[in-house]
Design a protein around this nucleic acid. Sequence first.
DNA 1: GTGAAAGCGCTAACAG
DNA 2: CTGTTAGCGCTTTCAC
Lengths: 362, 362
Amino acid sequence: MSRQQSNKRATLATVAERAGVSVTTVSVILSGRPELLRRYRADTIDKVRRTADRLKYRANLFATGLPLKRSPFFVLVLPAFEGRSLGMPHLLGYESSLLAGVISTGKERGLYPITTSISRQTNEAEIRQIETIIDGGMSGTIVHTPHPLFEKSLCPRFQAGYPIVAIFPARLDRWETNAIDVDNAAAGRTAARLLAAHGRKDWLLVRFERVVDAEELRCQSFLSAAREAGAGVKTIRLPVGLNDSQTCDFMVARLKQVQMDAVYGPGFVPAAGTLAACVRIGLRPQQDFDLVGCDCVGWHRPDLPAITSVDISWEEVGAQAVTQLAKMIDSDTSQFKTVLLEPRVVAGGTCPVPASFNPQQI
Amino acid sequence: MSRQQSNKRATLATVAERAGVSVTTVSVILSGRPELLRRYRADTIDKVRRTADRLKYRANLFATGLPLKRSPFFVLVLPAFEGRSLGMPHLLGYESSLLAGVISTGKERGLYPITTSISRQTNEAEIRQIETIIDGGMSGTIVHTPHPLFEKSLCPRFQAGYPIVAIFPARLDRWETNAIDVDNAAAGRTAARLLAAHGRKDWLLVRFERVVDAEELRCQSFLSAAREAGAGVKTIRLPVGLNDSQTCDFMVARLKQVQMDAVYGPGFVPAAGTLAACVRIGLRPQQDFDLVGCDCVGWHRPDLPAITSVDISWEEVGAQAVTQLAKMIDSDTSQFKTVLLEPRVVAGGTCPVPASFNPQQI
DNA sequence: GTGAAAGCGCTAACAG
DNA sequence: CTGTTAGCGCTTTCAC
């Protein structure tokens, strides 16, 4: 708001004066709460609305919030996208979907995100800057995979009653409440059921040497579901930091020494990399092997089939985050029971999905 | 801000009382403008800072802005991402880059985006909702490719002195000032120079039947540069609405009837689609033909070379948008000279880029 | 039915 | 050096 235009801006007082009524009248009539509105004469209402229109009156949202001690704004903290567009563009698609979910659900509830980001190698100054924002009178904060340093800021605020939602936290033990996540155990189980349903017996789990809690959970539940299904599972561990095409190279050599008819990659890189490796050494998807991945929806390569993926909609994640935030705001609480979204199988060409295959029933 | 926590929140008054000074003192000391700060005794400053710390005082950013008649927030209006993730994920990467540029440059300047979106098929209600936000005391608005219906809202506000930045406007005639765009004429010219530099003579321009102004400009300047270079150009027009793989199919038939040794696709779809078609009919990139595209950076397909692309950094676009907005805010103006970003050639495998090839010099 | 007045949290003259 | 005071634009009791 520049000084120039702000001098011209019509305020409640301007409208009141021009309409020949008091500010109260204008305020009540324009905010339009029916029970209060009824008390005013129809022609007064009309007159006020008319002059407000004529003067192009627009409420100052910041001033509106002050007496109410609440504002229609919350903070959305995303991980900075530094160089993430290189190599795995479909992951940026997830990020955009998340934002879309947050924005649209927010709109429905009259809540608007002040969007900011935190770098992977963040520092004191950046964190302080974010703190002054989230403490600046916001209704709450949604954080995508909170940075460890930033978690330290969040914790005392949460305890002080500040509404926080963590999306896909890396450390599950730190977010036993107030998180939105996939049901990772279900994801691993579902992958296993898919392979079992197609009669596979010699399974291969391809995972990174070190993984975040979420992926570890997927692996564990995959392994225990394998046991139940009576399938044998070999595990190959990838060095940390490989991308999908490096993983392909890495796997080509390994695959030749392994007997298997099914693969689970609990993340995009292991899944896509292994698929490429399998095809390169001449294995045929759905014939010689089945492959199930996670986080592979939206990834396309014309030389390879789409990956059958156990996945969730990031748009829904964003929507859930706002929904939970709105609930906390409305009820004046700061806790909610962590929401685990049921993963869904998105059929691709690497593993058939039985008709009416429904993770929930499993 | 929940009522609960807001009752506990320390305000200037609380700090003042506890420190035994006036609110002014606290205000001045904590906002820390050096010229005013100097006037206070060191021990007062210390005392105030200490108690503010102890009480965990945080300024309410909304209240802060009120007397100043300016706020640290602006609105960022993005096109809604409806279904855009399907098919062309790398385009979502651009969107994220733009956001990254806006966020990071905003941070440097103490300006924070309230992010919202507008659907492709928007309606009165949605537009009014966005209007109440941008009129709600914001410092300005950045709009990515303003929707025609929304342009109607923007126009009177612009004339009233409200700072607006349009990124990649579709109608250039409506945004002769206040726009951030690529220098589209330079883009077309640069593509032509690249093909000429490699000694090509029989060029093919692949474009949609109907295009936005930006692409039309690229085509025109490409054609006139071709004339100057003494190259012949045939043009193939794609039906509106094709995606890259449909374009590939469409082009395979056409290509067999055309003699050419170079292709320009002034956008992602024509470029990627034509490249795929060429390769499918057995033409070898850089040998049988060269191909130059636009907006192809970040797109990868392992069966095809990366496309040599005339492109700009969307992150820089976002940065420029905020820079211009900040300038307008600081100078209390609402106009700036449209910024045309010089395109850069990003070398891929479809056309060699001479060492020290520099669009600016051309 | 309507208005006066207090107050949300902060800043900026202006006194002293 | 520091405090008093009058706003910023809005909402909400509480009178009349």
